[in-house]
Structures are given as C-alpha cells and as structure tokens.
Design a protein around this nucleic acid. Structure first.
Lengths: 203, 203
DNA sequence: CCACCTATTTATAACTG
DNA sequence: TCAGTTATAAATAGGTG
C-alpha cells in the first residue's frame, strides 16, 4: 500500500526504516486492537525497537495475564537466565505525543462548524477513538519512563546497600582484630523490601 | 476494507465473527512478520481464540526468548498494574472507570441507542469531556502514586547515604586513633542527582 | 522529527459455489 | 464450514511544509 510496492526485506536506509517502523507499528497495534474487539479474543503484541525500547499492546488489563496464560498453555522452559541487557537510551522517541489540547480543540471545531448530521457523528466517533488512543499512548509512555526512573533509583539503592554491607564487614574485622569499641551496628538488613513489594504497598 | 465499513465493536453473529477472526488473524500475522523483517525489530504476537486455542507469531527463534526479554524489561510494570487493580476501591467513586476497552464500548452504545440528533451530539460531548476527565484523573492519580514510589526510594537512598557518611567518619576516626589501614574511601557524593532534577530529565 | 497529503497497494467484508 | 471472487475500505510509501 503506497506509492510503490515493497520488497519483503530489511529496509537499509536508516531514516526510512525508522519512518516505516513508526507507521507500521501504529497500524499493527490498531489492527491488533481491532481483532481483539471485533472477534472478542485476547491479543498480546510486543515490539522491541532496535534501540531496545518496548512497545506493547494487550487486550487484557495486563500483558502479564496473557503471559501467564501463555505459560500454562505452552509449558516451555523459560529458565530465568537474566540476560542483563542494559538499555541506556532513556530519553528516546516519544511517538506522536505532542498533542496537548489539540484534540479537544478539534472536537470543538467539529461541533461548531459542522451541521449536526450523521456524517459528523461518525467523524466524531473516529476523533473520540483517536483521543482515547492518544491518551493511552501518553499514559503508557509516562508509565514506562517512570518505571525506568524507579528502576534507576532501585539500582542506586542496591549499590549503596552493598557498599554498606562491605563496610560493616570491614569494621567487624577491625574490631575483632585487636579492639574493643562501642560502635552500635544495628542489623537492619530487613529494612527496605524489594521493589515489587514496595510498589505493591503503594496501591 | 471490504464491501462495507466496519464498526469497532464485537461482531455478534458467531459465524461472521469466526470468519473475520480467521481472516484478520492471518492479516495480523502477516503484518507482524513484515514489520519484523522490514524494520529489523523483534515482534511477538499471541492470540487466544475464544475457544482457548493459541495462535502465535514470533520474529525470534522462539517466542520464549522474546517473553524472557519482555519479563526482564517490565517485571516491575506487571507489579504496578496488578497492584493498581487492588486500587479498584479508589476508582469506585469515578463512575464507569473500568479502563480496558470500556470507554469505546460506551461510546458505541451511545451511538447506537440514540437517534442521531442534536441532543445525542450534546450528550456525546458530555461523554467526551467525561472520558477526558476520567482519563486525566486516572493519569494524575497514577502519577501521584509513582512519584510517591520514587520519593520513597529517594528517601531510602538518602538515608543509606547518610549512614554511609557516618560510617566513613567513624572509620576515619578509628584510623587516626591508632591504626594504619589501607581502606580506600572514594568520595562519591556527586552521584545520583536530587529527585526533581531526575524527574525533569524524564519529560 | 511530525503532521498532513495523495497515489497506490493491501486487506478484507460481503458474496458465491 | 470452507476456498475463491470482487468491490471497497484501509494502510501506507513517498513526498511536502
């Protein structure tokens, strides 16, 4: 679809590859949603861009739910070998999110300049869907970013805690060596639960 | 695409739903593959038909690989989503806030039940505004909660850092007292900028 | 990079056997 | 139910501002 026919092979030009990715990603997400709604089935879609950014769609409330279902269906060995791929690209693209109050303005314009007829209604529906999609995208993007922020802080914490443990050990060694000090080293390893638990308590 | 335009809602007729499912499933798979090839990205797609049958596509050798990647990527996000489900109580005061695909269904219901008249349009406008407000509320609430989470981690970090400084001082004191040790205490106070700055960089 | 445009290609809804 | 056909809606490649 388009001015020219497309060959089913990697687009070599980086720029057009990026553009095509952006466009087709949107189309694929839309079609996934349509399939889920029209046929009342569960659909999960995830896309990792070459820069490691994740885009996902899920018809259920959480992709995790579908993943769980997948796991029960296909009893695969998903051994938890964490390939710690560190994606440093924190502030990359934010696909089509400038919007601001523009959708509402568009709605206003539609309402005011069009005659109140069926056509207008249908167009309004499209607009509505668009608005919803945009809001979803924004919300999801924000979530992603904030999760990254939390993750970063969690990593920082972890490191500090490790350093602390190390120092405690060193001090203990010093004390047992030849000294009697009255340093109070309270064991507080139990403090600060892991991230997941912390988050759970918030909601 | 096709003889008629399609409404974005569940196809009630079981037979055509099945036909549409079959056709669109194929189309979606095809497009997923195209995206993966053309743009050189990883794509995973899974579809559960209403009868529980699983259809999947994956650009990698195994869907498991991508799932694993997904898990490492958004482990925390799953926790967040799951916990926000526990928050249904908070959402209870906001009418009709089931997220999911509900808003679109509501719109569809309105469009179909009502005669297409000015009155309907006005009601639609109200609906729109409501939808927007609801989405804003949700988004704001979520933001609040995540800021709290980040803040909590930041506080934890701060405390750990203070404890560390204290211990450094104690160790320095011990050393100057009567010891010669070769402890390497690097000053790294400059690490980890304050919360506000961190957040600013995100958006 | 992003929104919008338009000529074309693709996907598919409705139909048929 | 299923494969094939066709008319039409949608997606999108390439281009512009």
């Amino acid at each position: 679809m388009g001015r020219g026919k497309v060959q089913l092979k990697r687009i070599e030009d980086k720029s057009s590859r990026q553009v095509t990715f952006s466009k087709r990603k949107g189309g694929l997400m839309k079609k996934a949603r349509e399939l889920a709604v029209l046929c009342d089935v569960e659909v999960a879609l995830m896309i990792f861009s070459d820069r490691g950014r994740l885009y996902e769609f899920s018809s259920a409330e959480s992709l995790g739910k579908i993943l769980e279902r997948y796991r029960t269906h296909v009893e695969e060995e998903i051994a938890v070998r964490r390939s710690s791929e560190l994606e440093k690209t924190h502030h990359a693209d934010c696909p089509g999110l400038q919007m601001g109050a523009r959708p509402l303005e568009m709605i206003q314009r539609y309402l005011e300049e069009q005659n109140i007829q069926e056509k207008t209604l249908i167009e309004l529906t499209h607009l509505e869907i668009e608005l919803d999609v945009i809001l979803r995208q924004t919300r999801f993007r924000k979530t992603q970013l904030m999760i990254e922020a939390i993750k970063a802080h969690y990593e920082e914490e972890k490191q500090l805690r490790e350093e602390k443990t190390l120092m405690e050990e060193e001090m203990a060694a010093m004390m047992s060596e030849d000294h009697v000090l009255r340093l109070e080293l309270e064991p507080n390893n139990a403090r600060a639960p892991p991230l997941q638990e912390t988050l759970l308590n918030l909601f």
